[in-house]
């Protein structure tokens, strides 16, 4: 008959298993963590690799400064500026819509609504985020296009403004929920301190709470911006897709995303036009990457300031 292992031995055995398990888990987590970086790098490299021909034949400087986008003429003209400006116009309008509305909504939810209203609002906002972008596009076609056409007495309602308004609404959930989190995280101590100095709730909100949540609200805006600049389907349906240099938001524009989506199906794989579209993607990638990086740096600086 075997003697049962002593307590010490059993504990030792358990420790060994646990160590092994821990090593495995740690390895998996490490791989997953690095995977994100590897994928990001792979995307950048892939985009760059496929753009090589465009850089060689059309030239990066020419593409970035060119104001004419006629990819199918012979020889093709690949000036990206109309597309870049198109994206900027649409995104600018989107921000003008989503930032004031989104931040105000977040302030209401966080500072002025009762617990019941707060819960309902938060779930509705989550639903908003779950609506597919093509559905927003449909609503834009049915409602916003005729509205913009009538209000500004235009020949066509398909403008940068139209796309921007719908994009702004689409990025509201991001802006609202992240701003709301940031406001919620402001310590009660600060609100209390302000109230004790004879400030009304409004004064406290705008002089202390919102500035204190500034970094979080900034992050919310940046993520909203990221969402807007990368959005494709709705802008494709709403902006009219004329690849010309826009001067006002009341003109038809074509965004970088819209261009890639619309033209990729018609190009010869491996051809110059194909490569140029990858270059457009690379520029888009660089822009969003820069935005995120800038946002991160600002957030990090703010975070250091908060740390006591």
């Amino acid at each position: 008959m075997r003697t049962p292992p002593s307590d010490g031995a059993r504990r030792l055995g358990r420790t060994t298993t646990r160590r092994a398990a821990e090593a495995v888990v740690r390895a998996i987590i490490h791989v997953c963590g690095w995977l994100a970086i590897v994928i990001l790098a792979a995307i950048a490299i892939f985009l760059a690799w496929n753009s090589v021909r465009a850089f060689g034949e059309a030239g990066l400087g020419t593409m970035l400064s060119g104001t004419a986008w006629y990819p199918t003429s012979d020889p093709g003209k690949f000036g990206m500026l109309p597309l870049i400006l198109g994206s900027l116009f649409v995104t600018g309008v989107a921000l003008a819509v989503s930032v004031p509305v989104g931040v105000a909504a977040a302030v209401f939810i966080s500072e002025f609504s009762g617990p019941g209203v707060k819960d309902v609002m938060k779930s509705i906002i989550e639903f908003m985020a779950a609506v597919p972008s093509v559905v927003y596009g449909l609503i834009g076609v049915a409602v916003v296009i005729p509205l913009v056409k009538d209000v500004f007495a235009l020949n066509s309602g398909m403008t940068a403004l139209t796309g921007g308004i719908v994009l702004g609404v689409m990025s509201l959930p991001t802006v609202i929920s992240i701003s709301e989190d940031a406001l919620h995280a402001v310590p009660f101590d600060l609100r209390q301190g302000s109230a004790a100095l004879g400030n009304t709730r409004w004064q406290t909100t705008f002089k202390v709470t919102v500035p204190a949540a500034g970094s979080g609200i900034f992050a919310a805006v940046m993520l909203g911006l990221g969402r807007a600049i990368g959005e494709t389907m709705a802008v494709l349906m709403l902006t009219g897709n004329a690849a010309v240099m826009p001067t006002t938001v009341l003109e038809s524009v074509r965004t970088m995303t819209g261009t890639i989506a619309a033209e990729m199906g018609e190009v010869v794989q491996g051809g110059l036009h194909y490569s140029v579209l990858f270059a457009v993607g690379l520029v888009l990638f660089a822009i969003t990457f820069t935005i995120n990086l800038a946002a991160d740096l600002v957030l990090e600086r703010q975070r250091k300031r908060w740390r006591r």
Binding site: D189, Q192, P211, R305
Partner: peptide, 17 residues
Amino acid sequence: ELRMRVGQVFQRPNPFP
């Protein structure tokens, strides 16, 4: 208005940012 006449200092320092 009362709170302008009656100030308060809290347990934990709570300076504004």
